[in-house]
């Protein structure tokens, strides 16, 4: 992999260059404490030392509500007019987010390809940035604290510069377009990168044990832990909305006032919502809150492993950070493993 060095004093100028590759989006402040990915015009608007945004990057590719088709009584369903071929550059993407996208790639790809998702994916360049974990991050446990693919460029802070890994030919173009801002990697850079790597590793506070977890999940299928968590859960679905890998949606037809035309849309859904597994006739396969909470964990840590060969949690800590009932995934899993007495 091509690796170069970007001195920090050149970052602002490089960001300026990036704008010629597409509309620039980056983590930026929304209110006192909240951060979101949104359009930015220069470095001053970008939060470089952030931990997590409210919504993950999925919002760009798999929209909270999305028009799938236009329909009319005479012609049936037709694809909406394509969005103009606009390009985007998303700057400041953490490793767990990139893993989140790689998981969504698995889900939306396969035998049936979700064309909405991949059409947007191909228009967006990803500039990664590494980060220092807070007390909620456990991406080290989920193996998502590092990425070697899934980005065009990836920046790691090594003190007074960034070490920049070039992931794609587009990333290479970005570096070449601003060639004079970069320099070669020196021995001190390599040493600094490795020092930071140790420091980052040591700063993780939260941990879960994923190894053999699918087996434990099967074993503890009837565990009282699910009831306990079900008691607390409000079925608000926030954990699904903020999760980088939750992808459930529902579909509905919206008729215009003329009664003849309209749009088929899809909207983010959550398996925590009461009517999620309801079928016509009124039977609900998961009427109990405990069974819905269990399903969420079971799917991520057990079901996904058998379907796609890896768990679908990237350890970003959002579900705990935003859960109004304070449900903590790390604690739930430790309880299941009986590593915490209850």
């Amino acid at each position: 992999m091509r690796i170069v060095i970007l001195p920090k004093e050149n970052l602002a100028e490089f960001i300026g260059h990036l704008r010629s590759f597409g509309e620039l989006h980056a983590p930026t402040k929304r209110g006192e404490k909240s951060l979101v990915f949104a359009p930015v015009s220069d470095l001053s608007e970008i939060e470089l030392n952030y931990t997590r945004t409210i919504l993950p990057l999925k919002k760009y590719f798999f929209k909270a509500t999305d028009v799938m088709f236009n329909f009319c009584a005479e012609k049936g369903y037709e694809l909406p007019v394509e969005e103009a071929d606009k390009k985007y550059v998303i700057f400041g993407v953490h490793p767990c987010e990139i893993h989140g996208l790689k998981i969504l790639d698995l889900v939306f790809g396969g035998k049936y390809v979700d064309t909405y998702y991949f059409a947007r994916r191909s228009k967006v360049a990803i500039i990664g940035l590494d980060c220092i974990p807070d007390d909620l991050c456990f991406c080290r446990s989920t193996g998502t604290d590092f990425v070697d693919t899934g980005f065009d460029l990836f920046l790691s802070d090594i003190g007074d510069s960034y070490l920049v890994r070039v992931g794609t030919s587009l990333g290479d173009d970005m570096v070449r377009a601003a060639d004079s801002l970069f320099r070669q990697v020196k021995k001190e850079d390599r040493e600094a990168y490795k020092r930071n790597s140790v420091q980052r590793r040591d700063s993780f506070q939260a941990e879960i044990q994923l190894q053999d977890l699918p087996g434990i999940m099967d074993l503890e299928y009837e565990s009282h832990v699910w009831e306990e968590v079900g008691e607390k859960c409000l079925s608000c679905g926030i954990c699904s909305m903020v999760c980088p890998t939750c992808y459930c949606y529902s579909v509905f037809d919206e008729l215009s006032l003329d009664g003849n035309t309209g749009q088929r849309k899809r909207i983010w859904d959550s398996c925590l919502f009461k009517d999620y597994a309801l079928v016509a006739g009124g039977h609900n396969f998961r009427a109990q809150r405990s069974s819905r909470v269990k399903n969420r964990y079971f799917h991520k840590q057990r079901g996904f492993v058998s379907q796609y060969g890896r768990p679908s949690c990237v350890g970003c800590g959002r579900c705990k950070a935003y859960c109004p009932a304070g449900i903590d995934i790390v604690e739930v899993i430790s309880k299941l493993r009986s590593e915490i007495r209850v």
Binding site: Y112, V251, C271, Y276, V279, N295
Partner: peptide
């Protein structure tokens, strides 16, 4: 029979256990 929103393994609704 399960609730099905997509029919092609994307929407998540028809999940039973891990299928």
């Amino acid at each position: 029979e399960r609730n099905m929103q997509c029919g092609v393994g994307k929407c998540g609704h028809c999940m039973v256990g891990y299928k």
